[in-house]
């Protein structure tokens, strides 16, 4: 019997692999081959594209949070 490849399962596996690499892509810490693979998949997969964009927004938000004051900014009295 020839093994059948479930296309949905395969598609989801690609999404899972792509999403696992998104932080490294955002941080510029992915090797060029993987980076190309992730961006190529995200180009045609709307859910991965949204995930990548949302994750970028999250990281940018965190970076901006670093510029906000905190209650601990002043030295203790």
């Amino acid at each position: 019997m020839t093994p059948t490849i479930n296309p949905i399962k395969r598609y989801h596996e690609m999404c899972r692999e792509t999403r696992a690499k998104m932080s490294d892509l955002i941080d510029g810490e992915l090797d060029p081959r993987d980076a190309r693979q992730v961006t190529r998949h995200a180009r045609w997969c709307p859910n991965c594209r949204r995930m990548l964009k949302d994750l970028e927004r999250t990281v940018e938000g965190l970076q901006a949070v670093g510029k906000l004051p905190t209650p601990a900014d002043e030295p203790p009295a």
């Binding site: 989801h12 999404c15 999403r19 709307p46 859910n47 949204r50 995930m51 949302d54 927004r57 938000g61």
Partner: peptide, 18 residues
């Protein structure tokens, strides 16, 4: 990672929201 689910779209929000 929401694989297999619809990922919500924040992209339609204007930049100033972020």
């Amino acid at each position: 990672d929401l694989v297999g689910e619809r990922v919500p779209d924040w992209g339609s929000q204007p930049d100033r929201v972020f």
